[in-house]
Amino acid sequence: MPLRKGLGTPVSYLILIVMSIVSIAPFLWMFTTSVKDQKEIFLFPPKWIPSVFKWHNYVEAWNAGGLNFSLMFYNTMLIVIPVTIFTVLASSMAAYAFARIEFLGRNFLFMLLLASMMIPGAVTLIPQFILFRELTWLDSFLPLIVPGLFGNAFAIFLLRQFFMTIPGELEDAAMIDGCSRYRIWFQMFLPLSKPAVATLTVFTFQGVYNDFIGPLIYINSQNKFTVQLGLAAFNGVYQTRYDLLMAASVFTLLPIIILFLFAQRYFIEGITMSGLKG
């Protein structure tokens, strides 16, 4: 640890305090705008604290313009839950094999997988769109779910790094007792890797929940909108109603913030311990 004594500490505090304020202040602004009366939004100079807290904005935003956020949250969960579960399962299976089993072409396949992280999503977008169109999957959740069921390179890499740190003796003992590889993976490696699995769960959940380009391309019918698509449509209709727009933004943001605050401890540990450093 460099700069341990002297100016290092106060300077670090200063940097972190200033940057934390810069990080958080926009969200406070989002919140105060969301509870303002319409008349107070376009004031100059603006007011940080509204004279009346108009909580009713949230009720109005939830059902505004024929959009139904309850349905959109439900739709989003229909996509997020299977993708998150299968990403963890499929990626951890592959990660276990890459970390522990010697099979023909293992290193080659692993390098191929790492290389695939560098393939821009822009390249696969059009062929995938045409594929799903041929399958008549457009305007359904399938294009948003199915590609997410097979694990992904980043997740496999993260979990493999973590699995490599688990001592081999445990596994050898289990194998001598006649335990199959499948049981070792499911009953030993997965439970021993809670930080990495928690990290991956949060990553995947927020990635799928936050995605709006996928739904933008594949979903047309309003009754199939996800939360993000709903917010985008909302923006199209209520462009100057920043009070309602910010209220809608707050409740699309809230599930992710809550999830993160709960998983935070595991999350940071997972990233640090997997040695995710290239």
Binding site: M93, A97, F98, L113, V123, T124, P127, P147, G151, W185
Partner: peptide
Amino acid sequence: NLVGYSFIAPALIGFLAFTLLPVLAA
């Protein structure tokens, strides 16, 4: 080898169907 490939099968299928083939198609 068999067990190893059974473990990576889902990831491999996903990679072929949603990355490699689309890249060639693009």
